[in-house]
């Protein structure tokens, strides 16, 4: 297939997906009971008239279809809406939190692959106790929800007192020099990133192991052994590229998984990303923010998948055959 058309098609399907996501999240938000203003009902000092006036001002009295149409038209012009709670445009809320989330997810993704691929290769190639430890460890980690991992890490950190408990930077971080700031951010990253890595590692590890084990059984690897290729080179130069295709596909998925897991971890560890904003907005029924966060995460996902598709296209000559 022609490369340009391939990319075009992937982008088009990504955009369609985003549209579907927006429609779905809008309908779901309409189904959720209560509205942003409900909390005011509990305040005896606010009269029902004020409440109705506010409702009209926020446009909450309009039918959902009309609200969706308004939103869609604005979104097409790059306007993600207006947050009721923050009295500010949603985009101003999202962008710097988005970069924090990307920092966390990016670090975690990097670490996960950095750890999982060599471990997976070794455990597929060596077998024995290493394989058994990896498979036991990954089963164990798989069965523990990431919340529990994060809480356990936090509890440990509180006890030890060596690491900061939450947030992303120390209070006086702006007084720091660049290297200190980096060090400070890294220290703050440890807990959330470790929780994410521990949650995602077993999946990637297992896939790597399976893909490698399968390739190591392939005739061409036996042939390469027969040609006297070094073991290490055999693994890295011969087997790994051949096993890469499923892993690259998994890469797209792993970004998705890490992104959704990170929203949760962020809430628990106080990382100032999209997660806390998202959760709070859901509880506050600040749906413009909720939908915007969903859209941004979906867009990140689509981009991640597109990247892995293109990478696959570039790496595996067999894909280009059709």
């Amino acid at each position: 297939m022609n490369t340009a058309r391939y990319i075009e098609r992937r982008i088009a399907s990504g955009l369609l997906l985003l549209l579907a996501v927006s429609l779905l999240s809008f309908s779901l938000s309409a189904l959720a009971p209560g509205s942003f203003l409900d909390e005011m009902k509990l305040n005896p000092q606010i009269s029902p008239e004020t409440f109705t006036a506010l409702r009209a001002q926020y446009g909450l009295d309009q039918p959902i279809a009309l609200r969706y149409a308004h939103w869609l038209r604005a979104a097409l012009h790059g306007d993600l809406g207006f947050s009721f709670a923050y009295n500010a445009p949603v985009s101003s809320l999202i962008w710097n939190r988005c970069s924090n989330t990307l920092l966390l997810t990016g670090t975690a993704t990097f670490l996960v692959w950095l750890l999982a691929v060599p471990l997976g290769i070794l455990s597929a190639a060596k077998g024995g106790w290493l394989d058994r430890i990896c498979s036991f460890g990954s089963s164990l980690l798989l069965s523990v929800p990431e919340i529990v991992i994060a809480l356990a890490l936090l509890a440990f950190v509180v006890r030890s007192g060596r690491l900061p408990i939450g947030g992303m930077a120390s209070l006086n971080a702006e007084d720091f020099s660049l290297t200190q700031r980096i060090r400070d951010t890294v220290l703050h990253l440890v807990v959330p990133a470790a929780a994410l890595v521990l949650a995602a590692l077993p999946i990637v590890l297992r896939h790597t192991r399976t893909a490698m084990a399968e390739v190591l059984q392939a005739p061409f690897i036996k042939a390469a052994t027969g040609h006297g290729i070094f073991r290490a080179r055999l693994l890295l130069r011969h087997a790994l590229p051949a096993a890469a295709s499923p892993l690259i596909s998994l890469f797209g998925f792993s970004i998705a998984g890490l992104l959704s897991a990170s929203l949760l971890i962020e809430v628990i560890t106080g990382w100032p990303g999209l997660g806390p904003l998202f959760l709070e907005s859901i509880f506050a029924r600040d749906f413009q923010v909720v939908i915007a966060v969903v859209m941004v995460s979906s867009a990140l996902l689509v981009v991640g998948n597109l990247m892995s598709d293109l990478l696959l296209y570039a790496v595996d000559p067999r894909i280009r055959l059709e």
């Binding site: 392939a218 005739p219 061409f220 036996k222 042939a223 390469a224 027969g226 040609h227 011969h238 590229p241 051949a242 890469a244 790496v315 595996d316 000559p317 067999r318």
Partner: peptide
Amino acid sequence: ISIMYQEPMLALNPVM
């Protein structure tokens, strides 16, 4: 001593 495997399609690395 070298060896030629049967079925070259399988004995050659598809991505190299």
